[in-house]
Amino acid sequence: MATTAGRPGTTATGRRAARRLELLMCSPEHFTVSYEINPWMDAATDVDTGRALAQWTALRRTFERLGHGVRVLPGLPGLPDMVYAANGALVAAQGSVGVRFAHPERAGEAEAYARWLEDAGLGPVHRPEHVNEGEGDLLVVGEHLLAGHGFRTELAAHREVEAVLGRPVTSLRLVDPRFYHLDTALTVLDDDPEHPDVAWFPGAFDEESRGVLETLFPRGLRTDEETARVLGMNAVSDGRHVVLSPRAQRYAAQLAERGYEPVPVDLSELLRGGGGAKCCVLVLRR
């Protein structure tokens, strides 16, 4: 891909280059908020499952319209958070790592995702010893594998993933309980190894982790409290289009200034469970 000198990740025409994604999503027929395991959840609030399904369908169609492949895993009764497919695994070029959830309410999701991946030819799937919550806390950015810890994924899981995949893992400590997964505080904007790019909210990380991110991504986009508190960072980028919350208007403006194309999709009903666009997709890498 030809690039311009002025802006990494742009083609010779000056436009950012999109890459086709293969995504796994899980339908939310059984979505509700019947327990509270993160600050966004309120079990006393009524959830409109039909509206959640309509919003999820709009998200799926958006990805398809952008040219991405989408496969669907049906949700299972009694597992209302299964719609958040990002937490189901990490599928990297070096192999697939399953999950072990921090909360027992979600434990049944782990094997459902692992079996689907193996049936789809993306196995064998490593069943982890230590708690990790998949792409919620494990994000591929070019040659980097960023891993969050502090609320859900255990630090020991980072070393386990490192050993299983045979690639280094960079640990980042999360310190704000509202941003309990790495994908609620950091967006992978471009994971091309030649010009990796991220956006991140500094307030979600400890001082050491902020220093790490500044060193790895000196041109990375820093966002603000306004963006983070509407889960604006929980977005999906193909290197050009960024699917994100329509409430993250300042973030959308920042992205447009960098040559990305914001694509707003309303997932307000699914936000009741603490998830946005990124939570709803697992990237299937080969």
Results as ranks from 00 to 15, higher is better:
W56V: 08
W56M: 06
W56E: 05
T57A: 12
T57N: 04
T57H: 10
A58M: 04
R61A: 13
F63K: 07
E64T: 15
L66T: 05
G67N: 02
H68L: 11
R71C: 05
R71D: 07
V72D: 12
V72M: 14
V72W: 04
L73I: 05
P74A: 02
L76N: 01
L76A: 14
P77M: 08
G78W: 11
G78I: 04
L79R: 13
P80H: 01
D81C: 04
D81M: 03
M82D: 15
V83C: 14
V83L: 11
Y84L: 06
Y84H: 02
A85W: 09
A85V: 06
N87C: 14
A89E: 10
A89N: 09
L90I: 11
V91F: 07
A92I: 04
A92L: 05
A93L: 11
Q94D: 11
Q94Y: 06
G95D: 11
G95F: 09
S96W: 02
V97F: 09
V97H: 07
V97E: 00
R100Q: 08
R100W: 04
H103T: 15
E105G: 01
E105R: 15
E105H: 15
R106Y: 01
A107C: 00
A107P: 01
G108Y: 11
G108A: 08
E109C: 02
E109R: 00
E111K: 06
E111M: 05
A112E: 15
Y113Q: 09
Y113S: 04
A114T: 04
W116H: 15
W116N: 07
W116R: 09
L117E: 05
E118R: 12
E118K: 10
D119N: 13
D119M: 13
G121F: 08
L122T: 13
G123P: 11
P124D: 01
H126L: 00
R127N: 00
P128N: 08
H130I: 05
V131F: 00
N132P: 01
N132I: 14
E133F: 09
G134C: 05
E135Q: 13
E135W: 01
G136K: 06
G136I: 08
D137A: 03
D137I: 03
L138W: 04
L138D: 00
L138N: 03
V140I: 09
V141Q: 14
V141T: 11
V141C: 15
G142Q: 07
E143F: 04
H144Y: 11
H144F: 11
H144D: 02
L145W: 10
L146C: 10
L146V: 04
L146G: 02
A147G: 09
